[in-house]
Design a binder for these strands. Structure first.
Lengths: 102, 102
DNA sequence: CATACATATAACCAAAAGGTTATCTGAATG
DNA sequence: CATTCAGATAACCTTTTGGTTATATGTATG
């Protein structure tokens, strides 16, 4: 299942998402962009794959990753809706307060 | 430090934020809204307080919680900016592709 | 003042997160 | 074909997360 919140909760994963939104990249290039080990990056990629935010393509010894745009977009919209709703509630209350004041 | 992503990564915490955006609530009412123990809720509240997304007010034996609107709003805007940027990157690439096609 | 109630805290637990090093596999290359 | 290179996997570690039960503290209330 795609848990957007889990996927984006780590800054390394957010940076990875940003990188592969620009362009499809082999794992090696992603690893080079950070100062942690290849297996550590692999685990982040595994989480992003598990949450379906990445697509992978094998080509010989290289493994390329790219953003799964529809899933990401959908997850982002749902998140915006959910968090936006919290502020709407607040604004509704403010509106009610102002109306009572009239 | 305020880590919005950490705060919102749990569905229970998101629901709590929603509840206290509506109105200031005593801990008891928050506990009653879930099927987990009072100490468990307390830990979620502690995380939300740590990330400064909640304000607490003691009144006798009651402890009231409310949304820290400015911090939440700011965190939400930063999050939108960061995640929105990922899609912008993608759209920029699409734009480039379409322009190349002309 | 004894009791009930709201909250806080301690001790414990299992699972997940985030990292490491070492090693294996499988593809490409001198 | 031996070696190198990219990636996968295993074993291990520490900290965090998310929960539990039991108990303490402090405020109201009959």
């Amino acid at each position: 299942m795609s848990d957007m919140y889990r996927a984006i909760s780590d800054p390394i994963r957010r940076k990875i998402l940003n990188m592969v939104a620009h362009q499809e990249l082999p794992q090696l290039e992603i690893v080079r962009a950070f100062h942690i080990s290849q297996p550590a990056i692999k685990k982040h990629l595994a989480i992003l794959l598990e949450e379906e935010l990445l697509l992978e393509r094998r080509e010989g010894k290289y493994c390329f990753y790219r953003l799964n745009v529809p899933i990401f977009q959908n997850g982002y919209e749902q998140l915006q809706h959910e968090l936006g709703h919290i502020l709407e509630n607040k604004l509704t209350k403010l509106k009610q307060y102002l109306e009572e004041d009239l």
